[in-house]
Nucleic acid binder design. Structure first.
Length: 921
RNA sequence: GGGCGAAUAGCUCAGUUGGUUAGAGCGCCUGUCUUACACACAGGAGGUCGGGGGUUCGAGACCCUCUUCGCCCACCA
């Protein structure tokens, strides 16, 4: 036996050196590298990492997202799948450009000072230098991605995919260029998609303006607007065709205040007669709805606000902007215009008007709707396929309530504005010839001369929305569009996509569309949407609020495993994770405590097991097992089954589509963690280890060898169960087990398989059950000790009566019960005569005679209290059993269970009443 | 304005087709430094499952309604 001083493991778990030594060993041995040849005869299991922005710094949201993926990928790797986790980064067009532009601003420059080419080079250089650091940070939290396949949305390979997608969609008739009112960010100087222009509730104002009739200034129409500055671009006032109030006005002309432009009153059912005055000013160039109205009535579309958000005369707006307003910022102009309108008597009133205003998702600037020429993808045909994938069961979303949201969005899908007026990104692969008027050339390869006239060409200035490369991620990272891409053949379609609900539309739905459109299959069968990390006030953690947690701080303080455990254990399906950024000690206590506990379990257990070889458990005869041995082996089976049930199924059983029964199962990570934790802590440590200490203390003997074998087996399997969540500490401990070979990795060790219930002998099962009885005996004695404040050091004597009579085999447990409960135990079928405290449980009745120590009154009171309680419950139970309808209608199994329960309660009640009599009540 | 979801212990949450005395973690109370672990061990308190109504032999679970939160979508100027 190894004495504690010879223990090879330090008394405190040191995360930092453990993590620093194991991660490189995994990667050096290619543990995370997927092999497409192996994928031929195993199931591949593929996750593509949501690529973080290339300039991003790891925050706790990334930590959560990637920990979840790592848990799944490590689980499947151990379960025998060919696991592939594709990592990478996103070039993040607007976001990255903004970062570099900020640097330029600090140096008093703009991107225009540099020019396009130099600017793009500068951004590329910036990315080269600082980009991708986040991937190294992911290594620090243990992520087992296949770094040999690291991808980047702006790499040459992925650029090929982007062009292919654009050109093919164009060939399919799904890409077009159109003059539309789009969301425009004046700060970023670019258009935005609907999804990129986010609503913020704003306490706005509704300005009511009076527009007089051109030929009769005594009459007027009042219109309401939230953006009075747009009145300079008004081309009409619309009223509802059936609105009698305005019937006489339709067709007449109004004169715009300030610029005197004459505009017609038109009838259009877009107008809601119940809102405001029932008359709407129409500004086609600066409002998407007005644009539609304008088209219907063939109205002009003057642009009065430019790309920087400055009021000035743009296309078709000559004579519309008074000199004193030209050049003003749109918000300054608003103030000025309101003042001028008031002076002119055209301002009727201003109402408070809370409403939603769109903001740029990158810089939060108020979005300006603006007429411009943009590229769009016609989404309806793509959306159809994405809907079919979900409805056919090819795809599922967990939690399933998000499926309705997904369907709702796809059914109401609108065309996707994919062009951006920035410089950092995939340039639109379209060329124009200035010489002849040939149609624009859409090409997979760069075009240098016009194919029609041979003249010079110029490429479209716009770049593509960054999501236009991300939406190809599951196929482009595997080699699409290369026809002979081996990875694509071996690993597509993938399995699970793990992300937050925020980007269900931005990214997830579009990936499904691109996968279905280009590959004919959805890129994954499961979308797992996890919650958001929030602080104690339920606010989302963010840099600007200053309530974030740096995962690397947590790693430094408590280790990556503690971080991972805390997040996973708190991660109910789709539930937000609450952490307190001001108290990391408390927030990460679950992970830190569990890791420490596990370390100590390992330290103790391994020192007792020693380095001598152990027998495999399968070689032990069932007769050699003690009750505790049989029990812990049974508990291990149960724990494995619970972990499997919480995690799985890994894929649809039929390989193609989810059945209704499977559809919402699995990926309950917190349940998995809890099942594993309970086994290790509450069963292995609290009961098994405690109960076999005496056996291990013996110098030799068969019994000690059996205990060593069981210990080594059970701990080995426990570490396997835990490894996906806490990879470092488990790997480190595993290598101290005598049966572990030096060149193996826990990360690649087979996932445990529970023994089938029917392979166990009846005697082994009875043996295991006996330990349950012993546990209840121990707890009962402890309860009495505590109740009567017995001196902690003192031994009490106890008479244990197992339900079901004296069990000769049970007598062997008296020593175990005694040592766990600090008692001298007698196993007897008969109650002792003398007065004693007693506890009656379903499996056992325990009497603890505490001569002179028992407060008889207190014990009588306690017993009669328990009797009253149980009697009430028994009465209710008997009432139910006496109910004819219950007996007739309830399932037989339920009725029988209730009868058995009633009998048991009756027995316990009798025992307690006998006891009470003995106490002289 | 539509749609969806939630309300269970002080806090964060489980509770799988209705069926034992509703659970876990953290927190709280009482003991204990019992040589693996005080980041621990042992014992304990705490819930009429948001209110009301209904279906059922039986409801935390199903239906209706009210209240309070949260999320998503939307062209109310």
């Amino acid at each position: 036996m190894t004495s504690p001083d010879q223990n090879p493991l330090p008394p405190q778990y040191e995360a930092a050196p453990t993590e620093a030594s194991w991660y490189p060993r995994w990667t050096e041995h290619g543990v995370f590298t997927a092999d497409r040849d192996r994928a031929a005869d195993r199931e591949p299991f593929v996750i593509v990492m949501p690529p973080p922005n290339v300039t991003a710094v790891l925050h706790v949201g990334h930590g959560l997202n990637n920990t979840v993926q790592d848990v799944l990928i490590r689980w499947r790797r151990m379960a025998g799948d060919e696991a592939l986790w594709v990592p990478g980064t996103d070039h993040a067009g607007i976001a990255t450009q903004n970062v570099v532009e900020k640097q330029l601003t600090a140096a008093g420059q703009t991107r225009f000072d540099l020019g396009r080419e130099a600017f793009v080079e500068r951004v590329a250089g910036f990315v080269e230098q600082t980009g991708g650091e986040i991937l190294n940070q992911l290594k620090a939290i243990g992520c087992s991605a296949d770094w040999t396949r690291t991808a980047y949305t702006f790499s040459p390979e992925l650029s090929v995919a982007v062009r292919e997608a654009f050109v093919r969609l164009h060939e399919d008739g799904l890409v077009y260029k159109g003059h539309r009112v789009i969301h425009w960010c004046p700060r970023c100087g670019t258009s935005l998609s609907d999804e990129e222009a986010e609503f913020t509730e704003t306490a706005g104002k509704l300005y009511h303006l009076r527009y007089p009739l051109a030929d009769d200034p005594t009459q007027s129409v009042t219109v309401a607007t939230t953006r009075p500055e747009t009145m300079l671009g008004d081309v009409a006032v619309a009223v509802h065709p059936e609105d009698e109030r305005y019937a006489a006005m339709v067709g007449r002309e109004l004169q715009l205040p300030l610029n005197g432009v004459r505009i017609p009153v038109v009838a259009d059912s877009y107008t809601d007669p119940a809102f405001g005055s029932g008359a709407v000013k129409i500004t086609p160039a600066h409002d998407a709805n007005d644009f539609e109205v304008g088209k219907r009535h063939s109205l002009a579309m003057p642009v009065v606000i430019d790309a920087e958000g400055i009021v000035r005369e743009g296309d078709g707006a000559a004579g519309r902007v008074p000199a004193e307003l030209a050049g003003l910022d749109r918000f300054a102009a608003r103030k000025q215009i309101v003042a001028m309108l008031e002076a002119a008597g055209a301002l009727v009133k201003i109402d408070a008007h809370p409403h939603s205003v769109r903001h740029c998702y990158r810089c939060d600037t108020v979005v300006e709707p603006r007429l411009s020429n943009q590229w769009f993808v016609r989404m309806q045909p793509l959306a159809e396929k994405a809907l079919t994938a979900l409805r056919s069961g090819e795809l599922r979303i967990l939690p399933d309530r998000w499926e309705a949201v997904y369907v709702n969005w796809l059914e109401g899908i609108r065309d996707w504005n994919i062009s951006r007026q920035i410089w950092w990104g995939h340039r639109v692969p379209v060329w124009y010839c200035d010489h002849c008027h040939a149609a624009p050339i859409v090409s997979r390869t760069d075009v240098t001369a016009c194919p029609s006239c041979g003249g010079t060409v110029r490429q479209d200035e716009d770049v593509l929305d960054t999501w236009f490369s991300s939406w190809l991620w599951p196929i482009s990272t595997l080699g699409w569009p290369n026809a002979d891409a081996a990875d694509l053949a071996a690993f597509y379609p993938g399995d699970v996509l793990v992300t937050a609900p925020e980007i269900l539309f931005f990214w997830v739905s579009r990936m499904v569309m691109s996968g279905c459109w280009f590959m004919g299959k959805a890129p994954f069968h499961t979308v797992y949407l996890h919650g958001t990390v929030r602080d104690m006030q339920h606010r989302k953690m963010s840099k600007s609020l200053g309530n974030g947690i740096d995962p690397l701080d947590v790693v430094r303080l408590y280790g990556a495993d503690a971080l991972r455990w805390t997040m996973v254990a708190g991660l109910g399906l789709g539930v937000d994770v609450m952490l307190d950024p001001t108290d990391l000690d408390k927030s990460f206590a679950p992970g830190r405590n569990f890791c420490t506990k596990l370390w100590n379990i390992g330290r103790f257990l391994l020192s007792r097991v020693g380095e001598e070889p152990v027998q495999p458990v399968s070689a032990l005869s069932a007769d050699a097992l003690s009750a505790a041995d049989a029990w812990i082996l049974a508990r291990l089976d149960a724990a494995i089954a619970e972990c499997d049930a919480a995690l799985g199924p890994a894929r649809p059983a039929n390989g193609a589509t989810w059945t209704a029964a499977e559809r919402s199962r699995g990926l309950r990570l917190s349940e998995y963690a809890e099942a594993a934790r309970r086994f290790v802590w509450n069963e292995l440590a609290d009961w098994y280890l405690e109960s076999i200490k005496p056996r291990l203390a013996a110098d030799s003997g068969v019994d000690r060898e059996v205990a060593r074998a069981v210990l080594a087996h059970v701990f080995d399997h426990a570490l396997r169960l835990l490894h996906p969540i806490i990879p470092f500490i488990t790997e480190a401990l595993w290598h101290h087990l005598p049966q572990t070979s030096a060149d193996a990795f826990l990360a690649q060790a087979p996932w445990p398989v529970a023994r089938a219930e029917d392979t166990l002998s009846a005697s082994e099962r009875a043996n295991a059950a006996r330990f349950d009885t012993a546990q209840q005996a121990v707890q009962s004695i402890r309860q009495v000790r505590s109740e009567y404040a017995v001196n902690p050091g003192a031994f009490v004597s106890a008479v244990v009566m197992p339900t079901g009579g004296d069990d000769a085999a049970f007598a062997a447990l008296s020593g175990v019960i005694g040592s766990l409960a600090r008692a001298t135990v007698t196993i007897s079928p008969d109650a002792p005569a003398e007065a004693a405290a007693s506890v009656v449980t379903p499996l056992v009745t325990v009497h603890v005679p505490l001569a002179g120590m028992i407060d008889l009154d207190k014990e009588r009171q306690r017993l009669s209290g328990e009797i009253t309680q149980l009697d009430t419950q028994l009465t209710a139970l008997l009432g139910r059993l006496g109910n004819e309808k219950f007996v007739a209608k309830a399932p037989v199994a339920v009725v029988e269970a209730e009868r058995a329960k009633a009998a048991e309660w009756q027995g316990r009640l009798d025992a307690m009443r006998t006891k009470l009599t003995q106490l002289g009540a």
